[in-house]
């Protein structure tokens, strides 16, 4: 039982690996060899060893943000069942507390973008805030469907009560959630994680002024958030196998994670990035899907 409280360490330690795997998958899909799957670890290690250059304009918000972002992601990862739903530590928060804890990090990240007083940071911040506004209600509605179906907003209870996409409503909700996943992890077609072209960047725009240790913390937090959201998707929509013994559950978890990663890599490789002002039609469409899922659930009663 005691060990189960430490399942969040999986997210902290393996999230760079997941990032490496997605990159590798993308490289294959695009006909490249690509860097090794461990590359994100080397990147982080190198960034941690570097000196930092910080803007003279920046205030203490700039210094505090990497810590707040990292720590809020860490606190959020305490609340999610990775391989067992029976860990006592999960009582810290339900799915709503989890999302709002993540939002705390985002709040400071957006502020940090404004702190250096440059146009790039402001641009990234403004766009991130806009995407968040379009994504959050949609994500919340998709989660409502699962919560109402599972009879609780606790991820531990939902993941125990479900098998795999148990009802038509869940299928619709997952479709919406997947779009939210793309947007929240900053991937094509919403954002391009590999760009530094000022016209297209969102996340990269906000962290443009960061270097060294601070950048390492932010990047790591970003990887953690990605794995965290993948794990939430697994817990909400196909948690089968999580109730069994730890080894079997871990095996299932890895397979599900790889499937999601492949889906993400396939989406990114087969889609072009949307123009920013075309996003509302994508995200609005997903919002309608999540709304339909909720109404379907209420009308069908399952």
């Amino acid at each position: 039982m005691g060990m189960s409280n430490l399942q969040f360490l999986i997210i902290i330690l393996l999230s760079p690996l997941l990032q490496g795997i997605i990159k590798k998958m993308k490289a294959y899909a695009q006909g490249r060899v690509g860097p090794g799957v461990l590359q994100p670890y080397w990147d982080l290690a190198r960034l941690f060893r570097k000196d930092m250059v910080i803007s003279e304009t920046a205030s203490w918000i700039f210094h505090a943000t990497p810590f707040i972002v990292f720590l809020s992601t860490l606190a959020a990862s305490l609340m999610v069942p990775v391989i067992t739903p029976d860990a006592p530590v999960l009582a810290i928060g339900d799915i709503i507390a989890l999302l709002y804890t993540l939002a705390l990090g985002r709040f400071f990240l957006v502020l940090a973008g404004l702190d250096a007083g440059t146009a790039f940071g402001g641009e990234g911040s403004s766009r991130e805030a806009t995407v968040a506004i379009l994504v959050e209600p949609m994500m919340m509605l998709a989660i409502f469907t699962s919560a109402v179906a599972g009879g609780s907003t606790k991820l531990s209870v939902i993941s125990k009560s479900m098998h795999i996409l148990d009802s038509p409503a869940h299928v619709l909700a997952f479709a919406a959630f997947f779009v939210a996943l793309i947007a929240d992890t900053g991937r094509v077609p919403v954002d391009n994680p590999d760009t530094h072209l000022e016209l297209t960047m969102i996340h990269e725009g906000m962290v443009l002024e960061y270097s060294g240790r601070y950048l390492a913390l932010l990047e790591w937090a970003h990887y953690m958030k990605q794995m965290l959201l993948f794990t939430i998707a697994i817990d909400l929509f196909f948690p089968f196998g999580i109730k069994g013994d730890a080894l079997r559950s871990a095996l299932f978890y890895i397979i599900k994670l790889l499937v999601l990663a492949a889906a993400m890599a396939a989406t990114e490789s087969s889609r072009a990035k949307l123009r920013f002002f075309q996003l509302p039609s994508l995200l609005g469409g997903a919002f309608v899907l999540s709304l339909l899922s909720l109404i379907t659930f209420v009308m069908l009663g399952r």
Partner: peptide, 8 residues
């Protein structure tokens, strides 16, 4: 580790 303060 060194921190340098410079222009944005």
């Amino acid at each position: 580790r060194k921190i340098t303060y410079a222009n944005s």
